[in-house]
Amino acid sequence: MSGLVLEVVSIRPGAAAQPLFAPLDLTVAAGSITTLMGASGIGKSTLVDFVGGHLAAGFEATGRVLLGGRDVTRLPAEARRIGILFQDALLFPHLSVGDNLSFGLAQRIGGRRARRIAVEAALDQAGLGGFHDRDPATLSGGQRARAALMRTLMADPAALLLDEPFSKLDPALRSELREFVFDHVRARAIPVLLVSHDREDASAAGGPVVLLAER
């Protein structure tokens, strides 16, 4: 039972409003990438917010989120161990590329040297060797996205949400980055939920595809 399970999840944008989509039941097995598709504006990002624990005030949600058999619905975002790769690869502008990664690195890796080594190794894996002290603003879109993924993985998440992480990249870069992201997350053997409106994302992910239905 190491999967990510959503049970009859329903979200309304206000107490009096209609639900965004029909109640959703979904199981994402560990090691698989499940793609959740739906028309734009149906509430895919809101669902990601709900699962990750970031739902904005004003939204009303029902249903449960279970991770590895544990109910995390009431837990704050930071206690869920659910990593998110956002649409804009938001690197913290006040930190260097390397420090962005060390900010993500799990705290059980102690000692300045050990942490630095872990960060450099991750940078190398992402093809960003030698970028430790670079200002994130000087990175290209693809480099930023790779750095953001490494930062997310360094926190050692128990599940991963990908919120249309490729939609803002140009087509040539998109397939290359997809491959990079999918390779890295498959190696982790954790449940991964990809939210997208792009069919190519779904076929590249190679896992189950679920359609978010209108209510």
Binding site: E78, I84, G104, T152, A155
Partner: peptide, 11 residues
Amino acid sequence: RASLAAGRALG
């Protein structure tokens, strides 16, 4: 908001 969300997603 995005910074806080990214930070919380990292624990």
